[in-house]
Design a protein around this nucleic acid. Structure first.
Length: 250
DNA sequence: GCATTAACAGCCG
DNA sequence: CGGCTGTTAATGC
């Protein structure tokens, strides 16, 4: 069995710069914030390292400071299903933390990452005391529901180009992942794992998206030029390729 | 037909 | 040098 070492060893407090990457800290009043900061820990995770594993008792609510994680599970036949990627600024596991149940998904680093953890007891304390924190969690759950629906949609799409575009749009959600700037750092291989396509096909899709002007492909990542075009590639193209005006009345 | 695997050269950090 | 990218050829559903 692969030990989920990295998070339990070499844990340390956060630097000021790392604290700045945590989106919900600014929503707390000083007393709450101090308590949260005192409890926050950070650890490095290498490629393949587990941040948490299915069945383990919940210990932390997690956030990505830097890097890229994936959420997955294995079915009875041993086939791994990847549900989502988690880029910088993303916090996850609140459902499990809320219920104090065992983790229901595996979270692994796709590449070298820094992961922050808030102890589940502190998570509950904030829920019991901080309105700002409650708003953050509620907003987070709401936004995640939107992603869930979008995910079902993506799964039913047959066109690989659109699947790649929509998967990218999900990773670029500014509410869930405020740490992602205009450049999303993700290799084509990592994206292939997340979308469930071959690297070569992802490369082809990215080239097509770049040709449309939605993104620019860069080494080890991509620059976002038009997020809306990623969300609705076909619709958007029709609009721009042949703009049509509808005569209303006069 | 279309996507996947395999393999390669070239480039980047 | 190791990892990433872009491309081609062979293979499979």
């Amino acid at each position: 069995m692969v030990p989920d070492t990295s998070l339990h060893q070499r844990r340390r407090p956060l630097t000021a710069a790392e604290l700045d990457t945590i989106p919900w800290l600014h929503l707390l009043v000083p007393a709450e914030r101090e308590r949260a900061q005192d409890d926050l820990k950070i650890a490095d995770a290498g490629p393949g390292d587990y941040v948490c594993r299915i069945g383990r008792p919940v210990t932390y609510w997690f956030g990505v400071v830097d890097g890229l994680l994936k959420m997955s599970s294995d079915n009875a036949e041993g086939v791994t299903i990847t549900f989502m990627g988690v880029p910088p600024g993303g916090w996850f596991g609140e459902g499990t933390a809320l219920k104090r149940e065992p983790y229901r998904y595996n979270i692994q680093a796709l590449r070298k990452s820094r992961v922050a953890g808030l102890h589940v007891d502190t998570f509950h304390w904030l829920l019991d005391h901080s309105i700002g924190f409650n708003r953050f969690v509620m907003n987070q759950l709401n936004e995640r529901l939107g992603q869930f629906i979008a995910g079902r949609e993506i799964d039913r799409m047959t066109n690989p180009d659109i699947r790649v575009a929509r998967s990218l749009a999900a990773l670029l959600n500014p509410v869930l992942y405020p740490g992602v700037g205009e450049v999303l750092r993700i290799t084509q291989q990592e994206l292939a794992y997340l979308v469930g396509l071959s690297r070569q096909r992802v490369n082809e899709a990215l080239t097509a998206l770049a040709k449309q002007g939605s993104i620019r492909v860069e080494y080890g990542g991509l620059r976002v030029l038009n997020l809306q075009a990623l969300r609705f590639p076909i619709f958007f193209n029709k609009l721009t390729d042949s703009p049509r005006k509808i005569a209303l009345g006069s």
